[in-house]
Computed example of a mutant assay.
Amino acid sequence: MKNIYLDHAATTPAAEEVIEAMKPFYNEIYANPASSHFPGQKAAAALEDARESVAELIGAKKAEEIVFTAGGTEADNLALKGAAMANSEEGKHIITTAVEHHAVLKSCEYLEKHLGFEITQLGVDQEGFVNPQELKDNIRNDTILISVMAANNEIGTIQPIKELAAVARENNIIFHTDAVQIAGQLKIDVNDMNVDLLSLSAHKFNGPKGIGALFVRKGIELVPQISGGSQERKRRAGTANLTAAVGMGKAAEIVSTNLDKKITKLCSLQDYFIKELFSNFDEIKLNGPREQRLPANVNISFKNLDAESILFNLSLNNIAAAAGSACASGSLSVSHVLKEIGLKKEYAKSAVRFSLGFSNTKEEIDYVVQKLKEIIERLKSLQ
């Protein structure tokens, strides 16, 4: 059996069309988009075309609301730190959740430690959902920013962002969502969602690594986090990564065209995988909700086993999966997400995340289940 890749939540392969679209921008259309000469103007036009494609992917009305970044982590940092600093005279209270990506949590820690902001972390229920009423109850007169991820990168919980963002809007509070995981899995419409800031990363939807974007609704002020030139309408200094931006734009076009087909296939594969797991194993637990879940996410625990041992054995059988998120890979401690949902110890240390892609097949799932049966049986015999 060839290598089976079930770690698409960590990264996805760049689509062939994306690679082809990028090639001319290495040595043909290579001028700096900020230059005024003709080659520079040609490069600038390509950059703006890419910006337009990303805007269309998320339903932004204006392409200038898209700020290119070096990835989702930088987009989160710019959103949190930039908005907080720009609005600090109005208040210094930020609300987020305890299950956010570390790019959000660490940005909040920075604001708290170095700039005196107060951070409230909302808890979640056993399936990872935020309670909108709890959000309402924690809003203060000095609350200036709320950040809740659109869907969890570990357990796949899809948050009620539209409802949560409506609470923020009713109270005239800026709302940010880390939407890195939902791009390529769910339809995104920033206006329907009521969000003011939204983070994306191209390599999560078959684009290149090293490029991301932050949607910044018109009228939202940010303090730039990278100082220098006036690129990105003075919101992010540095020579534009034109080649990667073109790749992200092409990936956005592909997603926009094929999203319904992709969602249908992912949902079918996910449903089949989960049913096969529960048909073949005792003492397992699906972490996160069965409904309102990312269609690519299957996070499963095997009672009283160790995730690292399972992953090592899967790897020996050419199967790639993950324990928790890629950002926490290598850590033997239980992830902050699993702790927050109250997963019992006998299940928490054995959580394995399988994340599906459009290229995966039922035959691959059958192979994975078969190998898992052999692995789990062997590991249990060693106890």
Rank of each mutant, 00 (worst) to 15 (best):
G238K: 09
N32I: 00
Y367S: 05
A151R: 06
E232F: 13
E112N: 13
G330A: 04
K380L: 03
Q185M: 11
K265I: 10
E363K: 13
K349W: 08
G59I: 02
E100H: 13
G91S: 02
I211N: 00
K204C: 06
D76Y: 04
P289M: 09
E74R: 09
A9N: 15
G212A: 03
D142N: 13
S355W: 05
F354I: 05
G249W: 12
S107K: 07
A46Y: 01
L259D: 01
N171Q: 05
Q133L: 09
L78W: 07
Q292W: 14
F215Q: 06
E170N: 08
S107C: 08
S350H: 13
T97A: 08
V195M: 03
P33L: 02
E346C: 04
I155E: 01
N141H: 11
R51D: 01
P295T: 07
F354G: 01
K345S: 07
E48H: 05
E48C: 01
L78D: 11
V130L: 04
N152G: 14
A166W: 07
K275S: 12
S331E: 10
H102K: 13
L222G: 01
P33S: 03
G228S: 10
K250C: 02
N313H: 00
K2D: 10
T120I: 12
N280D: 05
I155D: 03
T143G: 09
H176N: 13
N194K: 13
A351C: 11
L314Y: 14
A86E: 03
L115Q: 14
A79L: 09
I182Q: 06
K344W: 00
E377I: 00
A21Y: 02
I146L: 05
A183S: 14
L277D: 11
V130K: 10
L200Q: 05
A307Y: 03
G116I: 06
R51I: 01
S88Y: 12
N313S: 05
E89V: 13
V369H: 09
N153C: 14
I220T: 07
G128K: 02
A240D: 06
G249Y: 06
K106C: 04
